[in-house]
Design a binder for these strands. Structure first.
Lengths: 190, 190
DNA sequence: TCAGTTTTGTTGACAAAGCAACAAAGGAGA
DNA sequence: TCTCCTTTGTTGCTTTGTCAACAAAACTGA
């Protein structure tokens, strides 16, 4: 049930999880999240339905896990998980979130209420964690909670806005314009 | 251990087998059959070595099974498994064997003695079975054993020869030339 | 030749996945 | 409202896969 990455996992568990995740991913491309049943997922994954429940509590837990994994990979790919606060890193983070959300929206069939809010909760939690990590490395020993909260909401809000725009401007320009507004709250940690 | 296709198979068995087969296939592209260990196969397939032995007696059994499956698919693809004897069907069969062997030789790293003879045994067995099936449908109720034996050896020999030629002629021409020599022994069943 | 390594099959205990069956909850539609 | 149908979690039991350990070949190279 836990995505614990440090302990050694049984190869069967790894296989089953990725079958589930792949199946879920391709179903999201076809259907609304609400219209996807656990049955659908296990059918496409060619695993037993009972096995699904051995890994995830329900399809909501699967979505959480799935989004988390994808976003985590995105961050890792850009090595944003092993760095500190700087305006440049912040810029890259905002870029990453914008691209990630845009991808979600183009890959997934008409996302609805529930879907979006579950995504939002997971992503914001990760942004917050990442920022907290960055800021805690600063020499300045101020509480990071408030600034990290403000910034994570702001960043997600920006990305959400961007990814929903009908005529999206060039991402670089968009981020250039938005960056200072976020950075101003974090300057003290630079 | 049995490739029994009519009984319903546990999904795990199907998965494991195809993991083994895929792994084996890609290893054959890299190495000699003799240099491939069961360890290699299970490593690449990401399964436990003990699991391999639950499915195949050894790597020779795996090769047999693998060749059998591939050739069976080739035959099925050309719907040669659901037909009767006719010069035209015979022509297609010869064509199929030639192409199959040519593919084996281009996909697999320097095949050696042992490898080739195992392939030969399996393929000839299947050709013989197929021809027996064809001939037994004929109105003429003659024993099919001798003609099927002659033809299956001849066909394999032709295909082996063709696939080893340095400068292969156009396959169509080659088969056109060879066909009558094989067909003459089977005419009585037409 | 002989010691050192790798590969091979095999085993038994244990964990994961499959399966069928169940009650319960929800939806859809007369 | 009342059916009929689908989906949901859950359970007891079976089968399959994993793992570590082992002895017995089979290579390797000095």
């Amino acid at each position: 049930m836990l995505p614990n990455p440090n302990e050694k996992l049984d190869p069967r568990v790894i296989r089953t999880r990725s079958l589930i995740l792949d199946s879920f991913g391709s179903l999201l491309a076809e259907k609304n999240f609400e219209n996807i049943s656990v049955q659908d997922v296990t059918d496409k994954a060619q695993i037993n339905r009972a096995t699904f429940y051995a890994h995830f509590q329900d399809k909501y837990a699967l979505l959480d896990y799935s989004i988390n994994q994808m976003f985590r990979n995105e961050i890792k790919k850009r090595t944003l998980d092993v760095c500190h606060y700087s305006p440049d890193n912040l810029r890259n983070l905002i870029l990453a979130v914008c691209e990630f959300l845009s991808r979600i929206h183009s890959d997934c069939a008409q996302p609805h209420q529930q879907f979006e809010s579950l995504v939002e909760a997971q992503i914001k939690k990760q942004i917050f964690g990442l920022l907290s990590h960055w800021l805690s490395q600063s020499k300045v020993k101020i509480s990071t909670e408030i600034p990290a909260t403000v910034a994570s909401w702001a960043i997600y809000g920006l990305a959400s806005h961007y990814s929903h725009m009908k005529k999206r401007p060039a991402l670089d320009k968009f981020v250039d314009e938005a960056l200072p507004l976020v950075a101003v709250n974090l300057e003290q940690f630079a």
